[in-house]
Nucleic acid binder design. Structure first.
Length: 925
RNA sequence: GCUCGAGUGGUGGAAUCGGUAGACACGCGGGACUUAAAAUCCCGUGGCCUCAACAGCCGUGCGGGUUCAAGUCCCGCCUCGAGUACCA
């Protein structure tokens, strides 16, 4: 019988389902291993051939671990809330739940074809109330906690209230939005609402004022990329920067732990680096500058405390509260106009168009070290959201300050010996300090690094300021004016937010008539009828963002049907955290930060037993499309082949890659493809139409989408799995090219024939003893495949299989002793054919429960070693010598060799270098 | 600008610790079988020199260096890709 992949694959898929082969339970007798894929958002377009790349890799690793005796948790689910379904709903009125369900079913159908070992009993969907109950639950917990900087841990908000009642803010070191100072008496005198306002300043989930792109006409907040030139992309309505009260998560409180945790993770350096940059720790100092003619002071942040003597002006962000306080009457109009004009520009625009702009406030600050007056300016190159929203400008040593100083003709004082600041600033932190002495601080002659340390010490000792670590990481805005997301478990009483009781969860998403904001500009939930608590209090109208549901899903998979807890202690203590996480790099600064934050919070609560959620991370590359082109001669319906196109004036046209094979166009299929091509004429090369090609993003509009279903149909799932791995290293981005797939398909056919090589393809495996050559081939493969799977080099695994097959074919080997281990080795890659062959060999249980073949090094041991023999450093030949020879013996044997004699003929031997097990070099005179 | 990667045949890629560069596959060329095609099998396939064989020389982006030996290590460039960007 020939290799009938269709029949084989459908039969064993059913067997796996019938026998619940992929069902996983806690089993304390076996070590656990948790392999997780980033769950997909089920889009309407379905899967293309690039999506399963990571899933295949994780599936191979899961199966490998299972064959090695691990109890492997390998679940799958859906990140089901999201914008596309809502947009579709707005356009068509189709409920997002309906389209999402449909898309999920389509995804499942496609995934099932590829033969993954997911335990589908553990499937989660973020839009399922049973699931998002725990997203809401975590939010309530975040609202009920604050972050204690001393304990480096989240604490119940009750502890904070107690502290305030007993000591006020004295001795408190907690993460907050704004530093507050009050006594216990002041706290106790406040009414409940005032107390709540203060607590909001510390809660990990809090209502805060944040700057957003607000489009009044559309009644919604827009993301930066939805705004161009100050107007909305959709509709062209004006957009302004506006402060809005939104739910936020105090991610910044965890900045240091998020940074420290990276060291223990087995992630690539590049993604760790991306996160480090995103967290953006910078050590510096906060300094207070007095304002001339008043008792007021304002605070700036700097990493270059050593450059205070070079400050020639100060700059405030336009949004800074000091702008209004400081501006003099003369300058008020100019400042107001400037601030208004910057409001109209989004942050993105400010970055894109880096013109130097700014305006003088009329006020002066006093340099605490020199006592000199320094003009205070306003400019949008200073950001309100970082540091204190104000800087001391040192034009000699900061390129931005330099550009500003040059533009407005402000003085520049160099502070480093020998630096030339006539054309650009000197930003490097190197050199000897000059011009820096006054008011008890002398930095002259010091190296910059020492000067920074000395200045910081001086500043904190004299009370001018304090040493401070700043982070770029900002708190996450957690409100969305959308329908298709988790409702907040929040209602409002006297204008203050209150959490629903945990017994009221889940708070289910209500039905609404349309999916647009209300006429009065409320979010879509404003349309819901009876969107109030049992007592009649109004519920929150915003919903949670996309990352809410994906932040703790890996915990839920451990215990997905538990109605009493996010995850039981028993399940969590067994599964702990994800050992291997596979997904794209695009989540480096989103999901992978939020998840780590969320898990650390749950860790503080004792819900998660491990500080980091994802121990090892593999980032699979993207699969790009390989587009094909035909060339139409202008104003005709005639198409010329690639090699002839330069003779004419032609227009390249994308052609569906599915009617092109090895860049040769199927002419009949082309004529049938589009009505306008029915009468097409062709100019051929050697009787063929050769298409051009290009690497582009895989997309419908470029007709380069390759659907995995079609590949499975034509070649089978096992071929698809092997070929996706064979394409190249898993983490590399590469174009999909169906052309090479024959090689993998041929391989599987040959494997089939190895077992079924009898007359008319009858099963024919012999029980004869394997010889040394056969055993060596097998064990070389065991060694290589085992090592290569461990280091995620799946492409070389496939190559190794092909090498072994070629050897076994040459040896005409059909011995059970060799073929049976081969089936097990093949299982992670091609599970269907492996299961079939396993049963052909007479086994009654699934190959998934087989044991990974043990490596016997004895079969690999050589009794000789290949030495490169070099003359004057040039390798001339290899010489096989027995193992165990000492240096002198090796030298003797080499010099006596006839090849050696040929090279040293007529020359004198100056020196012989022998490194046992390595090289022999003969230096000739 | 900054950070991190990567440059190897016609193509995808291999070379794990510094040890015969180009494994494996595609493509291409030639052959066998076949009326023919498909399928299958066999041979060849980095460049140069050579009728050919043997041998030789060159060859991993460029220029240097270390080493008996460098795709691999070090220094200096070039090119491409990814991320990030007025973070004081």
């Amino acid at each position: 019988m020939e290799y009938n992949f269709k029949e084989i694959e459908s039969r064993w898929k059913q067997y796996w389902i019938d026998n619940k082969v992929y069902k996983v339970e806690v089993d304390k007798s076996r070590p656990k291993f948790y392999v997780l894929d980033m769950f997909p958002y089920p889009s309407g377009a379905g899967l293309h051939v690039g999506h399963p790349l990571g899933y295949i890799a994780s599936d191979i690793y899961s199966r490998f671990k299972r064959l090695n005796g691990f109890n492997v948790l390998h679940p799958m689910g859906y990140d089901a809330y999201g914008l596309p379904a809502e947009q579709y709903a707005i356009q068509t009125g189709q409920h997002p739940a309906v389209t999402t369900e449909k898309n999920i079913n389509r995804y499942r159908e496609q995934l099932d074809k590829i033969g993954f070992c997911f335990d589908w009993d553990r499937e989660v969907r973020t839009c399922d109330p049973k699931y998002y109950k725990w997203t809401q639950w975590a939010f309530i917990k975040m609202f009920g906690h604050y972050y204690d900087n001393k304990l480096k841990k989240a604490q119940p908000i009750a502890n904070l209230e107690k502290h305030f009642a007993e000591q006020g803010t004295k001795g408190l070191d907690a993460a907050c939005s704004e530093e507050l100072t009050f006594t216990a008496a002041e706290w106790n005198a406040k009414n409940d609402k005032e107390k709540q306002e203060i607590l909001m300043n510390y809660r990990i989930a809090y209502l805060g004022n944040t700057m957003v792109n607000w489009c009044p006409k559309l009644g919604t907040v827009l993301a930066n990329d939805e705004v161009v030139d100050g107007v909305s992309v959709r509709g062209g309505y004006p957009v302004v920067q506006k402060v809005m009260r939104q739910w936020c998560l105090r991610v910044s409180a965890y900045a240091q732990r998020l940074l420290d945790g990276l060291d223990s993770l087995d992630w690539t350096d590049s993604i760790k680096e991306t996160q480090r940059n995103w967290i953006g720790r910078s050590e510096g100092a906060e300094m207070q500058f007095g304002i001339k003619g008043t008792d007021e002071k304002f605070t700036i942040f700097t990493t270059r405390a050593d450059t205070v003597f070079g400050v020639t002006f100060m700059v405030l962000a336009p949004e800074s509260e000091y702008v209004d306080k400081l501006t003099t009457a003369d300058q008020r109009q100019a400042v107001t106009e400037y601030v208004e004009s910057t409001k109209k520009r989004t942050e993105r625009e400010r970055i894109a168009d880096r013109k130097v702009t700014g305006v003088f406030t009329g006020a002066y600050a006093v340099n605490p070290l020199t006592g000199k007056d320094i003009p205070i300016w306003v400019s949008d190159y200073v950001l309100a959201g970082y540091g204190t929203g104000a800087i001391m400008a040192v034009p000699a040593h900061d390129s931005r300050d330099y550009a500003f100083a040059k533009h407005f003709n402000l003085p520049i004082i160099p502070l480093i010996e020998g630096c030339d600041v006539s054309n650009e600033s000197y930003d490097a932190k190197e050199g000897k300090v000059i011009n820096s002495c006054g008011n008890g601080l002398d930095l002259n002659g010091l190296d910059v690094k020492d000067a920074i340390a000395k200045a910081k010490k001086y500043i904190s000792e004299t009370g001018i300021g304090r040493v401070k670590v700043n982070y770029r990481l900002r708190d996450a805005i957690f409100s969305r004016q959308r329908y298709w997301g988790e409702p907040f478990p929040v209602y409002y009483k006297d204008g203050m937010p209150q959490m629903l009781g945990e017994d009221k969860l889940p708070l289910e998403l209500p039905e609404i008539d349309k999916f647009l904001p209300t006429e009065s500009g409320e979010p879509p939930l404003g349309r819901a009828k009876n969107w109030v608590t049992a007592d009649g209090y109004p519920l929150e109208l915003n919903t949670m963002p996309g990352f809410a549901g994906s932040s703790a899903y890996y915990l839920r998979y451990m215990d997905p049907h538990n109605d009493n807890a996010l995850v039981s202690t028993e399940a969590n203590h067994y599964w702990k955290n994800v050992d291997l996480y596979v997904g794209g790099t695009e989540h480096a600064t989103g999901h992978l930060i939020y998840s780590r934050f969320w898990n650390k919070f749950l860790f503080d609560l004792g819900v998660s037993s491990t500080e980091e959620p994802f121990q090892k991370l593999i980032n699979q590359g993207m699969i790009q499309g390989r587009s094909n082109f035909v060339y139409r001669i202008k104003d005709t319906n005639k198409f010329v082949s690639l090699g002839l196109k330069d003779k004419y004036d032609v227009t390249p046209i994308h052609v569906d890659v599915n009617i092109v094979s090895n860049d040769i166009l199927d002419l009949e299929a082309f004529k049938a493809w589009r009505p306008e091509f029915a009468t097409a004429e062709f100019e051929l090369e050697d009787g063929k139409y050769v298409c051009g090609w290009a690497i582009e993003k895989m997309s419908k509009s470029m007709f380069n989408v390759v659907n995995p279903d079609m590949i499975v149909d034509k070649y089978g799932a096992d071929t698809l799995r092997m070929y996706e791995m064979f394409l190249g290293p898993i983490e590399l981005s590469k174009p999909w090219d169906t052309n090479g797939i024959d090689g993998c398909h041929k391989f599987l056919r040959k494997v089939w024939r190895l077992f079924n090589g009898g007359a008319d393809g009858a099963f024919n495996v012999s029980d004869d003893k394997a010889n040394a050559k056969e055993l060596k081939a097998l064990h070389t493969t065991i060694k290589k495949i085992t090592a290569d799977i461990e280091r995620f080099s799946f492409n070389t695994c496939v190559s190794q299989f092909m090498i072994l097959l070629n050897e076994l074919t040459d040896l005409k080997c059909n011995k059970r002793e060799i073929l049976e281990p081969l089936v097990v080795l093949l299982t992670p890659f091609a599970p269907h054919i492996a299961e079939e062959l396993w049963h052909q060999l007479g086994h009654q249980t699934s190959v998934c429960d087989a044991q990974w073949p043990a490596l016997d090094e004895n079969h690999l041991v050589e009794n000789s070693f290949n030495y490169p023999i070099s003359f004057n450093g040039k390798t001339r030949f290899m010489l096989e010598l027995p193992l165990g020879m000492d240096k002198a013996e090796i030298e003797k044997t080499v010099l006596a060799n006839e090849n050696t004699q040929k090279y040293i003929e007529g020359k004198t031997i100056k020196k012989v270098i022998v490194v046992p097990g390595k090289i022999v070099n003969v230096a000739l005179g």
